[in-house]
Each structure stands twice: as structure tokens, then as C-alpha cells.
């Protein structure tokens, strides 16, 4: 039945994989967009840094199931709305990325920042044209962790019936079949690796200025 099951369900498996990828990637991108200003704010003041980093760290300790259940009440959405998952995972991504952004910006050579300031860059111009581009290697590293972590957390949404690869786990469990579970695990792994490689490749493409020894 092994191959037959996969062939019979190929269309659905493909659909679940696509959903899974979207539910992992979209929150990572949204999280990055929110984390950039927050991380910048934190990196600029030694007093604000522990506050922002502490709060965002706390966010990550909220169990995902609790968030999935709570968010519809807060957002006024239906429990099956994929938006709940997107919002929850965006929060997790923010939690992971704020620290990455703050530390990445802090790692930009002091001389480079000082030169930009003295040349007459406004603070936002300096962030956009100098600090963020120079922090790309550090940010890229954090992004890989965030996207892979999201691929794994998304599976929890299966308990609410939101379709993605986690649905194969619940299906396998209720039908007492091992195969859907194995297929789900393998596809999650493959998706993780593919996304990780993509982020890594994008980081390298954005940083042709890095010494070879550092990117290897």
C-alpha cells in the first residue's frame, strides 16, 4: 500500500506542503519587518536593550497551542482562520529576530558608523544604507534559525485542523497508519533544509563584499 497511498494522495500532499511553506515563510518575513525597528531601538540604548530583549524573549516561552487558542479571542477571528497561525508565528519570529537585529547592528564596526554620521547621514539613512547592509551576515544567520523553527511549530496547528503537513500526523494517528506520519516528517525535514539553503544563498548573494574565509 506504501507507494499507492502516496500516489493516491499526491495532490493533497502537495497542497499541504505548499500551505506549510507559506505558513512558515510569511510570518518569518513579517517578523523580520517588525523586528528591524525594534532591534534598532534596542541597539541604540543600553537601557532599552534589556527591556526589549527580555520582553521578546518572554514571548517565545508562550506555548504555541495556547496562542492558537487565545488569538481568535483577541483578534476576533474564527478558530480555523490561518491568520491565527500567521500572527502566532510572527510573534515567535519577532521574539527570535529582535535580538539578532540588535546584536547584528551592534556588531557593525564603530568606525564605519562614526564615518557615516560625520559625513552627514541622517539616522534612518545610516540604518538603511550602512548598518543594515553590513549586518546582513548576522541577520541571515538568525533568519535561518527563525524559518526552520517556524517549519516545526506550524505542525502544531494541525490540532486545530488548519491544513499543513502536520495534518498528516493527526491523520496517521487517527487511522493508526505510520506512513502518513513518516511522509510528514520527511517533507518537514526537506522543507527545512530547502528554506535554510535558500536563506543562506540569499545572504551570500547580498554580501559579495565578505571575505571568503568568513562565508565558508
Amino acid at each position: 500500500m506504501t507507494l499507492n497511498w502516496i500516489i493516491d494522495n499526491a495532490a493533497r500532499i502537495g497542497e499541504l506542503t505548499a500551505w506549510h511553506a507559506a505558513l512558515s515563510v510569511v510570518p518569518t518575513v513579517l517578523g523580520l519587518l517588525v523586528a528591524i525597528p525594534l532591534g534598532w531601538w534596542a541597539s541604540r540604548s543600553p537601557r532599552i536593550y534589556p527591556l526589549v530583549i527580555g520582553t521578546s524573549g518572554l514571548l517565545y516561552t508562550i506555548p504555541s497551542i495556547a496562542l492558537f487558542v487565545l488569538l481568535p479571542k483577541v483578534l476576533g477571528t474564527r478558530i480555523l482562520d490561518p491568520l491565527n497561525v500567521v500572527v502566532a508565528l510572527t510573534l515567535y519570529s519577532i521574539a527570535l529576530l529582535v535580538r539578532v537585529i540588535a546584536d547584528g547592528l551592534a556588531s557593525v564596526p564603530h568606525d564605519t558608523v562614526q564615518a557615516a554620521t560625520a559625513m552627514g547621514y541622517r539616522p534612518w539613512q545610516r540604518l538603511l544604507h550602512v548598518e543594515l547592509p553590513v549586518a546582513v551576515p548576522a541577520i541571515g544567520g538568525g533568519l535561518r534559525v527563525a524559518v526552520v523553527s517556524n517549519v516545526s511549530i506550524v505542525t502544531m496547528a494541525a490540532l486545530l485542523g488548519i491544513p499543513q503537513l502536520g495534518s498528516l500526523f493527526t491523520q496517521g494517528f487517527s487511522l493508526r497508519l505510520t506512513l502518513p506520519i513518516v511522509v510528514g516528517i520527511v517533507l518537514c525535514l526537506v522543507l527545512s533544509v530547502v528554506l535554510d539553503v535558500l536563506v543562506h544563498a540569499a545572504t551570500r548573494a547580498l554580501t559579495p563584499w565578505q571575505q571568503k574565509a568568513e562565508t565558508a
Binding site: 564596526p109 564605519t112 560625520a118 559625513m119 550602512v130
Partner: peptide, 28 residues
Amino acid sequence: IELRRKIGYVIQSAGLFPHRTVVDNVAA
């Protein structure tokens, strides 16, 4: 900011933008 744009600034370790080529550092 306007003041600084009228005053060139050279520092000890050059403080070049590591992500820009030499010509783009000068053109920045």
C-alpha cells in the same frame, strides 16, 4: 546634518563602508 555635509571627515582606520566597492565608497 547640513553642517556635516559641508565638512569632509577622515578617520584613523579610514572607516570605509565594507559593503561598498572602492568607487562606491567615494560616490556614497
